[in-house]
Structure formats: C-alpha cells, structure tokens
Design a protein around this nucleic acid. Structure first.
Length: 845
RNA sequence: GCGGGCGUGAUGGAAUGGUAGACAUAUCGGACUUAAAAUCCGAAGGCCUUAGUGCCGUGUGGGUUCGAGUCCCACCGCCCGCACCA
C-alpha cells in the first residue's frame, strides 16, 4: 500500500486545477457570486505562518462556496509601497523597486504551493504604475468634488538627518538613526475630508450586522461623537473671550481653572514676550506626537497671568493656564478644569495648588474630594450643590442636557456636536509611494495634473545614500509644465500614505485591467466583498479609511451606491505564536535561538535554554517557523490542517512541532484508512451501516456548520471524531465507501489536495472540487435516546436515559423515582422541579 | 493614560445560561516486534489514613439565577489600537 506522499499529490492536483482553470473568476448570470478577500500582504520577502493561517481561512470559505454552487472571486495582490523598501535601500543598497518586485516574486513562489484557490490572473501590486495611476485619477476626482484639501500640519522632524520621521521612527523623542531630539515642524499637506462623513460612518455601523461587535464599537469610539457645549469665558483684561469646549457642563460649578493648548493662538501671542512660556511651548513641541505618549506624559502647565470670569458665578475668577495635555485639534483647544470630577484635572490642581470644588456628591454622602476625583456614571443619580439650572437630584446626563438648555437660554454658550475623528493627512515626504498628481505653478498656484498625463510615474534613477526624499533632489523629475497655463512648473514631491493604496484595492480586483479605476459592470457584479478576513490590528484605520473611500468613490461614480459599505461581512483572525528560546551571553544579554535548533529544550551542544511562553512570531525573537520548510517536510495540507486546528480562528494559535507532526500523522492515517476502504469488499451489515451513516450525517451537519461560522477548529475536531468512527466501524464496503467519500469532501476546504487524491482512490466522479457539497439528512440527525442529568439544587446527582420526545411531566415523574432524589427529598415535597427537555432536570429542595 | 479584547487540566482548546474539560498534544500503561520506528488499544483536572451517587475546581472578589466558564459590577494579568508601521 502506498504511503501518503504529500509532495507528489499536491503537485499533481495543483496542475489539474490549473488545467481545468477552476479558479478563474468570470461574471456569470447563472450562479450567485461570492467575493472572498483576505487582507493583502506587504511583500516583506518571506511568507510567515500568519499569512498561511489568514489565506487558508479565506481558502476554506472560498472552496466551500465553490462547492455550494457559487461563482467565487478570490484574488490576491501586494500592498507594495512603504518604508521598509526605502530602509532596505538605505541599509543594504539597491533600489526599492527591485527589492519590492524581487520580494513579490519570492513570496508568490512560496505561496503557490499552498494550493490556494486564487485567481492569479487578477494579481497586481500597488506599486504598479497601472494601479497607482488609477489612484492618482481617483485623487483628482476627489479634488474636484472637494474631498481633498490642503492645510498646515505638524510632522516629526529629525534635525540631524534633515528628514521627516514616522511615529515609528521616533523612539523616546529621538530619531531612530541619528538619536537627535526630534522637533515638530509645520508643513502644508494634503488631507482627505473624512470628517465630513463622521455622522454617516457612525450611523452606518448599525447596519454592519456581520462585523464583529468589538470592531463596530472601536470604530464608534474612534469617531467619538459627543454632545457638548462651547462656553466663552470673558477675560478680565478685556481681551477676546476664551472659548472652552466641554462635554460635562454639569461640573461647571466646580470649574477652578482654564487650560489652553500650547498651540492655542492666545498661548502663541503671549509667548512672544514671555520667555518662560516660549520655552514651555518649545519643550511641549519636542514631545512625541502620538496620542499615547501625550496621555502618558507628565501633565505640566504654566500660568499665563490672564484670568477669566466664571459665566454663572461672576464673583469667581479663574486663572488661565497653558497645559501640555490640551489638544489644539480637538474642540476649541481650550477646556475648563474641574478637579473634583476629573482625575487629570485633579492631579493638575494638586500639583499646582489650585482649588478643588465639588459640583455634586453621591446621594446620602456629602464627600469632599481628596485624591480621587468623583466621576459617577452619567446614568447614576447625583445631588447637585447650589446648581444654577435649578436641578438637584438627577442623573449627570439630565444635568448636562439641562445645563446646555440653560446656557443657550441665557446666551452664555452654544450646544455643539463634535467628533473626535480628524481629517486624514495623506502627504508623506517619501519616495516609495504613489506621487500626488499636482504641480506647483508660480502663476496658477497648486494645479491638478491633467488626467491624460497620468500616471505620474516615479523616476527610477534615485539614490538613498543620504536621508530625505530623493524626489526633492532629483535633477529633472520635478520639472514639468503647468497644465493650466503651460508655463514651467514644479511637481509635488510628496507621495501618498500607503493607507490610500489599501483603501480601494478590493474594488480594483473586480476589474484589474480597466482603463478607469473601476469598470461599472464589474464593480456592480462583484461588489461587495462578501467575506473580508484580516487581523484585528486593522479594526480601526484601514477599515474606516476603506469605508470612507467607498463613499468617496461612489460620489465620483466609481462604485455603485450599494457598495458604500464595501465589506458585507468581516472576520478578524488571531496571530500565530510560538515559544521563545533564550540563553544569555557573557554580559547577561538575551540570545535567541530558532525552534529548529532546539531538541528537548536543549541546543545541539547540550546547553539548556530558557523557554519563554508563546508570543507573536517575530524575526528579532527568532520564534519563527518557516512555512516553506514545513511544506517541504509535511506538505501544504498538513500546514493548512494545523493552522486551522486547536484554536478558534479569532484567537491566537500556538505553533508547536508536535502539533504539526500530529497533523501529518492524522492525514497519513486518513490516507491509509481510505485506501483500505477503497479495496474492501465487506458485506453489508444493516445495523453497522445505519450507525455509520447516522454518524456521517452528523459529521456533514457539524462540519458544514463549523465551516460556515468560522468554527474551523470545531469542524476539525468533528472530522477527527468521524475518522475514528469510520476506522472502527463494522459497516460493509458500500457504506464505508460512501462515508469515506463524504469525509474526503468535508475535508476538501482544508486539505484540498489530499481530498482530491482520496476522492480518486475511492472512485469518486471527476474532481472533488467539482462535487456539490453534501447535505445532511435531518432525519438521520436525531438520536433514539438522550441522557438527562438530574440535578438537586443545581448539583448533578443522577442521570436518566429517555426518549428525546418524552413529555415534560413524564420526565419529571421518572426523575422523582431516582434513588438519589428520594434520598435527598427524605419524604418532603420539592419546592420546584425544572425540566428542560433534552437537556436537564433540576429538583429544588 | 484612553478605547477594545482575552483569562478553562501539564499544553492548545470544547461547551444555544443546562452533565465543565469534546477533539488534539505531551505523559503513563498495554498489544504487535528479536529490537526500534510505525500502528493499534487503554488511563488520566485537583484533593482524601472514609475512594464516594464524596469534596473542590473555568484569573481574584462580589452579584443575578432553580442553575453561571457563559450575564452584571469591581479588581489583577496579558494582548491589540491610539491617527506618519503595514
């Protein structure tokens, strides 16, 4: 009997699929379409287990849909622009373009052996001029519709390398290469007007029923709609009032200071003749621009000397401070501080000895705030002290509403709805990205490039021996003529954020060769993406940007109205993790070791290694397993089977050598069992046949359910069980062959090559990929008897075996005859008996 | 810091509010073998001088419920995101 020769089987069936052109997606009216998409990879050069897991999941869905009669679109491409290519060029020389296309070729070669059901004819990379040229066309359309504009924004500036740094390149406030203190610099940059869509993007979340609730919630919080109020505070020195924005005007009575942003016009004006303040503002500008860093940084302030009047209690005077924690981007760049009811304000007040005044307290306990701010939930009732709007015992939410009304009635302020969502800055001062297609003309100003001049192609003759954007120093690339007046002009040298590239690639896959960004018929037919799969790390930005882009593309006529929400269903999968093996060098610094160098917790020379629990696979920790070596050792089906087993897809899965070995052994076993069954001539056995077929229908039911609901691990557990049943069954050859063919089919989304081989061995007709998905017979799913546990006061004490249809009162009667029940009751009547048919009986005493 | 998530045997994990630990790994025992590998069969959450229809047990502490791994509150730990990483 032949062994399970994965390499041979896999090559053979991949060729057969190619020949039959099974994965080619063409529009068709006779079948329902199904578009399944996994987030496309960045071409780093090597595929990793995370890719294998992600693409295998998508492949299971795609192959299952194929088997259920759908016209499936399952494309693949490359998110190919970005910093790593430039970093590689700087570190090892070469050109980002060569590096990137070389990596794509390598990764494609590593991916193909997985046997994914991908229509490779639709493949593209975002760095192809054919793709980014259409992206430039989109940009021009957006510009025309007022969806893009220019404004000033700050960037991280490395004063030594004379270059703009990404947040990732700023480490503890210093440039990652130069180590110099990073400064902030203001540049004129392009922005997408995503904030115009705040309300729409928020409201439409409700309709995304097939998105994880957590992602919708994260997006809701990110958009951050708040109802608040703008309150002008009159300056005692007669200057323009300082307008504060607050979402908690119910705390007004406790206001004891005003804090304004260092970038606030008042701060800037004062700094001109206040050296101390100027220094403070300069210091603040050195802070990381990330929100996380701002929030974690020590809250500092400096008093301006300006005072304002409390709008409701005119005898109260509040000092105005400049605070490093106030963001100019949000609200009005000024807030009032209420230390009693806000922890940050309280810490600030304690630090600078500012007064702490309660606005309210909890009913029944009049607490003075000490070191912990009193912040009740908005729905909790509180007692207001001396409140101007005449409210006493109400919830904070009611108090907020009343206060806003009161302020509006008395002309003291204006209710305002605000969103946290900011416009999307897309300008990047880098070479390896999509050029922004505009020119700067001395006479006409900023002029969009003419569409017939697209694509604006990146020049190849650039060098990376010095930092900064090579486009800036290119001798001729910038030179162009103004599309408006024909005079000599200069190209924009900024390129687009790589998030732009990934915000519409899903639409481009519907017609990758179209001469416009999309083809209307193809987009109408294939959109939306029926199932999108990717990492939870993209829960906010990528998905929100894509939702915005779909709307903007609709406005410009590139997508139908129905594609405004481009992803019908979203699934966020977990990572592949691995243990970390570590030893220490002479200086006590950690040294990491590759898993393949470890045997029984030891290195080849016998040195014991420290085992650190599972963590995300990363090159620096060396806890990586190369899919290529796994595939050559065991085959793609084993790798696919393993990444789907054990862990639920949304959670992390730990790669273990023993697990991979076990997956291989199992597939070998299935191969062997099926080969035996194929040649078996056992006579039929009515009882055993019936039993096997019942189990087969249960397996069809459970595996189908698992595949359709992302319960791949559960589906695989069921397949293990069914394989055992089949192996032990005393059924006749015919029943066994039927069961084995079904097993091959049920496994085919996960182990497509092996399934084809088994199907052929068992005499199945054609290829399993063309066989319709089996359907479970409902009548075969019911058991004759069920075991009901009997609980007494919630603790299991006995069990009875009954027909699933036995009426409730009969089940109760039978339960009462059980020894354990009689003993526990001791002649008394039970307080209550709960019978859940088919589930449980609980006797309450 | 803020927003979101997760926490179950030695390990990965299963479990529409209804028998906690399915399935798998590692481990141990047995069969087969001259031997090993492979294969097959089986044991197994913890506790106990009472081995039971016993007690305890799903990060910690409370709560709701006839019944909680599951729902609610608080805390602890870990993970993801925080707008120029992709």
């Amino acid at each position: 009997m032949s062994r399970y020769a994965a390499a041979e089987i896999e090559a053979k069936w991949q060729e057969a699929w190619d020949k039959a052109n099974v994965f080619r997606a063409e529009r068709s009216a006779d079948k329902p379409k199904y578009y399944v998409l996994e987030m496309f990879p960045y071409p780093s050069g090597r595929i990793h287990m995370g890719h294998v897991r992600n693409y295998t999941m998508g492949d299971v869905i795609a192959r299952h849909r194929l088997a259920t009669g759908h016209n499936v679109l399952h494309p693949m491409g490359w998110d190919a622009f970005g910093m790593p290519a430039e970093n590689a060029a700087m570190a090892i020389g070469g050109h980002p373009k060569e590096w990137t296309y070389g990596n794509i070729a390598d990764m494609r070669a590593q991916m193909k052996p997985l046997g994914l059901s991908i229509d490779w004819t639709r493949e593209f990379a975002t760095c192809d001029p054919e793709y980014y040229g259409q992206q430039q066309a989109l940009f021009l359309d957006f510009l025309e519709k007022g969806l893009v504009y220019r404004k000033n924004a700050v960037v991280n500036w490395d004063p030594v390398d004379m270059t703009v740094l990404a947040n990732e390149q700023v480490i503890d406030g210093k440039g990652w290469r130069s180590g110099a203190d990073v400064e902030k610099r203001e540049l004129t940059q392009w922005f997408f007007k995503i904030s115009d869509f705040s309300e729409e993007l928020l409201e439409a979340l409700d309709g995304l029923d097939n998105w994880p609730a957590k992602v919708r919630l994260m997006q809701e919080n990110w958009i951050g709609k708040s109802r608040g109020i703008e309150i002008p505070f009159q300056r005692k020195d007669g200057g323009d009032p300082i307008v504060c924005y607050s979402t908690r005007p119910d705390t007004m009575r406790g206001a004891s200071f005003i804090a304004i942003s260092p970038e606030h016009p008042v701060s800037r004006a004062l700094a001109e003749d206040n050296a101390e303040l100027a220094t403070f503002i300069a210091e603040t500008r050195k802070m990381d621009t990330t929100e996380a860093a701002m929030e974690k940084a020590e809250k500092k302030g400096i008093e301006t000397g300006i005072t304002v009047q409390h709008p409701v209690y005119p005898d109260q005077t509040l000092p105005v401070w400049v605070g490093n924690f106030v963001l100019m981007d949000y609200g009005t760049g000024a807030v009032f501080g209420c230390p009693a009811h806000d922890q940050r304000d309280l810490d600030f007040a304690r630090k600078y000895d500012l007064p702490v005044r309660n606005a309210f307290y909890m009913p029944g306990q009049e607490i003075e705030v000490e070191n912990e701010a009193l912040v009740p939930a908005k729905t909790e009732p509180v007692v207001f002290i001396d409140h101007f709007a005449g409210i006493k015992d109400v919830t904070s939410q009611d108090a907020i509403d009343n206060t806003i009304d009161y302020f509006e009635e008395h002309n003291l302020g204006k209710g305002q709805v605000k969103y946290r969502l900011r416009d999307w800055g897309l300008s990047r001062q880098r070479y390896w990205g999509c050029p922004i297609p505009v020119v700067h003309c001395d006479a006409c100003g900023v002029v969009p490039e003419a569409k017939e001049n697209l694509p604006v192609v990146l020049p190849d003759d650039v060098t990376f021996d010095v930092p900064g954007n090579p486009l800036d120093r290119h001798p001729t690339w910038r030179d162009c003529t103004c599309p408006k007046c024909g005079a000599a002009a200069k190209r924009e040298t900024d390129t687009m954020d790589t998030f732009v590239d990934s915000s519409w690639y899903f639409a481009r896959f519907t017609s990758p060769d179209a001469a416009t960004p999309t083809n209307a018929e193809d987009a109408a037919y294939w959109m939306n993406v029926d199932q999108y799969i990717g990492g939870i790390e993209h829960a906010i930005l990528h998905l929100l940007y894509s939702r915005f882009f779909a709307r903007a593309m609709h406005i410009c006529g590139h997508l139908p109205e129905s594609a405004k929400e481009p992803f019908d269903a979203l699934f966020t999968q977990g990572m592949v993790t691995h243990e970390i093996y570590q030893t220490r060098d002479a200086n006590g610094r950690p040294v990491y070791h590759l898993p393949e160098d470890i045997t029984d917790g030891k290195l080849a020379d016998g040195t014991e290694v420290e085992i650190i629990p599972s963590a995300k696979m990363s090159k620096s920790k060396k806890n990586v397993v190369d899919p290529v070596s796994i595939i050559s050792a065991y085959g793609a089906d084993t790798a696919r089977w393993f990444v789907l087993s054990d862990s639920p897809p949304e959670r992390d899965v730990e790669w273990t050598a023993s697990g991979a070995e076990a997956a291989f052994k199992h597939l070998s076993r299935v191969h062997r069992i099926c080969a035996e069954i194929a040649t078996s001539s056992d006579a039929a056995s009515p009882e055993a046949d019936e039993q096997l077929l019942r189990e087969m229908h249960k397996a069809i039911h459970d595996v189908t359910g698992g595949v359709e609901s992302f319960g791949f691990n559960a589906a695989i557990a069921k397949l293990y069980g069914f394989t055992n049943t089949l192996a032990k069954s005393k059924a006749g050859a015919a029943a066994k062959q039927q069961a084995a063919k079904t097993l091959a089919q049920l496994m085919s989304p996960m182990t497509p090559h092996l399934s084809e081989e088994l199907w052929q061995t068992l005499g199945g007709e054609g290829m399993v990929i063309h066989a319709p998905w089996p359907v479970a017979d409902e009548a075969m799913l019911k058991d004759d008897t069920v075991t009901l546990p009997i609980q007494i006061n919630g603790k299991r004490r006995a069990e009875i075996s009954v027909s699933p249809d036995m009426p409730k009162d009969e089940v109760e009667k039978l339960a009462m005859t059980q020894d354990a029940v009689i003993k526990a009751l001791d002649g008394a009547q039970p307080k209550k008996v709960i019978v859940v048919p088919g589930r449980i009986v609980n006797v309450v005493i």
